[in-house]
């Protein structure tokens, strides 16, 4: 397992290089002048020139690229134009917030998505299946920021169950955390639950058609036992692979959801950076998120291999 993990990490290295290159190009290729944004409104031409020089934007492409990687090796993602704070520091400060809410959302997704998917598959073609399928599809089809706004109106204003926004760290007050994190986590989860339900249902249906399940049933095992012991275990494998996709969608969603609920996480940080045209922050944020996801996916791969030994032998794509 250790060797496999190492191998996956080595495989990920060139990908990491490409990701960072894409992030660099994003800032390099923009038609606007980040120095103008950095210098602030009303700055004179020499001030802008000075800022451009300080940011290294007046140097040739190769030099800028080299500097970018030199700084990257030291964990330096540049400095935010708006916050006056290193990008890496700003991101790390907010990462726990996004992490906690994402985890919360992920737990909700897995519990509800699995339950709904299994229920639908076991009661294939029944009314349970129909309802679950429709609701799951709706979850995938609704704009989640729109849902978030509707949730604020219903659950905060009309019913008064949750605050409209803000964030309390779980280390400060667990109750406060539940109050503030629940609506963002649910808004984020709705899309994922839809995804996971659909996949679980499809996989489960496949598994239930397999011979060994038929054999188990034929042996007279109770339905609960068949589903619980035999089917579920085999359903888990493909589902682990979906977690990577779910995490990716989660992080995307956090930009709008954190903005709507005024949650000070990495998503809101990026959302604000976009509004303020804080280019180093956009670049650094994207790079950070992509790299994190990549490493998470490596982790999932390794986990997957632990579940299913065939993968280790199979190696890469055909």
């Amino acid at each position: 397992m250790g060797r496999h993990a190492l191998w996956r990490l080595i495989q990920a290295a060139p990908l990491l290089l490409l990701i960072s290159l894409i992030s660099f190009l994003l800032l390099y290729l923009i038609p606007g002048d980040p120095a103008l944004v950095a210098a602030g409104p009303g700055a004179s031409a020499d001030v802008v020139a000075q800022v451009r020089h300080n940011m290294g934007l007046d140097r040739p492409f190769a030099v800028q690229l080299g500097l970018f990687y030199a700084r990257l090796l030291h964990g330096d993602l540049g400095r935010s134009l708006v916050l006056g704070q290193p990008v890496a520091e700003a991101i790390l400060q907010r990462a726990p917030v996004t992490l906690w809410i994402s985890l919360y959302s992920l737990v909700l997704t897995i519990i509800l998505g699995l339950a709904a998917g299994i229920a639908a598959a076991v009661r294939h073609n029944s009314w349970v299946d129909q309802i679950v399928s429709v609701v799951a599809l709706l979850g995938v089809s609704l704009p989640n920021f729109w849902l978030a706004l509707v949730m604020i109106v219903i659950f905060s204003v009309q019913l008064g169950w949750f605050p409209t926004g803000g964030y309390v760290a779980p280390t400060t007050s667990l109750a406060g955390w539940f109050a503030t994190a629940t609506m963002p986590a649910v808004a984020l989860a709705l899309l994922q639950i839809g995804l996971l339900t659909r996949i679980t249902r499809a996989t489960m249906l496949d598994v239930l058609r397999q011979d060994y399940i038929r054999t188990a049933r034929a042996k007279g095992l109770g339905e609960a036992l068949v589903v619980g012991r035999h089917a579920l275990a085999n359903t888990m494998i493909p589902i682990v692979t979906v977690v990577g996709i779910i995490l990716s969608v989660l992080l995307s969603g956090s930009v709008v959801i954190e903005t709507v609920f005024a949650v000070p996480g990495v998503g809101a940080l990026l959302g604000n950076a976009i509004l303020a045209r804080d280019y180093p922050m956009i670049q650094g944020g994207l790079l950070f998120v992509a790299a994190t996801l990549l490493l998470l996916n490596v982790g999932i791969d390794v986990l997957y291999a632990a579940f299913d030994p065939r993968v280790r032998l199979g190696g890469d794509d055909p």
Binding site: S248, L251, Q283
Partner: peptide, 21 residues
Amino acid sequence: RLSDALMAFPAVLLAIGIAAA
């Protein structure tokens, strides 16, 4: 590998980055 790298970014997030740029 190039498509892997692009897919490593969350979809909407990358779109946001490109559109912002």
